[in-house]
């Protein structure tokens, strides 16, 4: 009665018995296996694959971000460098200008000082000269009076004499 033939009817060779046992067992086992696989393998693996996907996406994003950041930093540094250079240039220029100005000022100051000194010296000299001349004139006048009075003793009064001599000296002093 058993499966003694190769024909497809082998399953029906069981006679009147319903061979649902194998069918039911296969179905149940398959469903159980599927549920187990889903719980123990598929779920965790899908989770980790998703995690990996996210991780890679994140890494790519962050790499992109750091790249742009680095780019930005380089740009910033370059700008700063350029700024610093122009600033230094400006400083040097300024210092040079300032130095020039200062030199000019100092020279001008020295010049005016010198001028002032010269002026005052000249003034002094003039004053001294005048003083000296006045002193000499006085001396000469009194000496001449003395001499004249010695020479012409009583002919002339002292006032007349003095007046006369002063006239002469005035003329002579010219």
């Amino acid at each position: 009665m058993l499966t003694n033939s190769l024909v497809l009817g082998a399953a029906e060779a069981h006679g009147s018995n319903f061979n649902g046992g194998d069918i039911a067992f296969q179905l149940i086992m398959f469903l159980i296996l599927m549920a187990l696989l889903k719980k123990f393998a598929w779920g965790p693996l899908m989770g980790i694959m998703k995690q990996r996907e996210d991780h890679i996406a994140n890494e790519i994003n962050s790499a992109e971000q750091s790249r742009t950041e680095a780019h930005q930093l380089v740009e910033e540094q370059r700008n700063l460098l350029k700024e610093a250079r122009t600033e230094a240039q400006g400083l040097i220029e300024n210092a040079k200008k300032q130095g020039d100005l200062q030199r000019e000022e100092i020279i001008a100051l020295a010049r005016t000082e010198a001028e002032r000194l010269k002026e005052s010296a000249k003034l002094e000299i003039d004053q001294q000269k005048e003083k000296a001349v006045a002193a000499i004139r006085e001396q000469v006048a009194s000496l001449s009076v003395l001499i004249a009075s010695k020479v012409i003793e009583k002919e002339l009064s002292v006032e007349d004499q003095e007046k006369l001599i002063n006239e002469y000296i005035q003329e002579g002093g010219r």
Partner: peptide, 24 residues
């Protein structure tokens, strides 16, 4: 009715499922 089990099938189905589950 009478339900027939082929015990060899039952055994091998169980073994095959167990192996797949173990691999997983």
């Amino acid at each position: 009715t009478t339900i027939t089990f082929n015990l060899a099938n039952v055994l091998m189905i169980t073994i095959a499922s167990a192996i797949v589950f173990l691999i997983a």
